[in-house]
């Protein structure tokens, strides 16, 4: 059994985005870990179950969609809140993500204040489980 650990997992193939979110979340006191690919994220999740995942969609080899799908399939990880952070901005994507069980969807460029508010809410909800 993997215990939930006090950190937010950032999954994005863009280093710039990882650095940005890392800095933003650190600023308000969150621990973070970054993965540059879905597979890297997958193995990290197995080692340390995060309280929240910020997930990019368009990534090499395995996409954010596929990672989200696998997470929701595994009862062990299905409850981890996922906020999708992507440069995709269309309604179809938003709809699809909602159906797949994503908790929220933020388009790049990010409204950092709104994102932080949502991170806070979902981080707390997870801890209350």
């Amino acid at each position: 059994m993997v215990n939930t650990e006090e950190y937010v997992l950032l999954v994005d193939d863009s280093q710039t985005n990882n650095v940005l979110l890392e800095a933003v979340l650190a600023e308000v006191g969150y621990e973070t870990a970054t993965a540059m690919s879905a597979s890297e994220a997958w193995s990290l999740i197995h080692k340390r179950r995060p309280r929240l995942i910020l997930l990019d969609l368009l990534m090499p080899k395995i996409s954010g969609f596929q990672l989200l799908e696998r997470l929701k399939e595994k009862p062990l990880f299905a409850q981890i809140p996922v906020i999708v952070v992507s440069a995709l901005s269309d309604a179809d994507t938003a709809m699809r993500l909602k159906e797949m069980g994503a908790d929220d969807f933020f388009s790049k460029p990010l409204n950092l204040q709104a994102l932080l508010k949502r991170v806070e809410e979902l981080y707390q909800s997870e801890s209350s489980l």
Binding site: N17, L20, V24, L58, A87, L88, S89, K108, P109, L110
Partner: peptide
Amino acid sequence: QNMSHEIRTPMNGIMGFVEL
């Protein structure tokens, strides 16, 4: 859609770091 994606990605970096 692709163009939007390709523009939003660097825009995010610029705007996010400026805010930081």
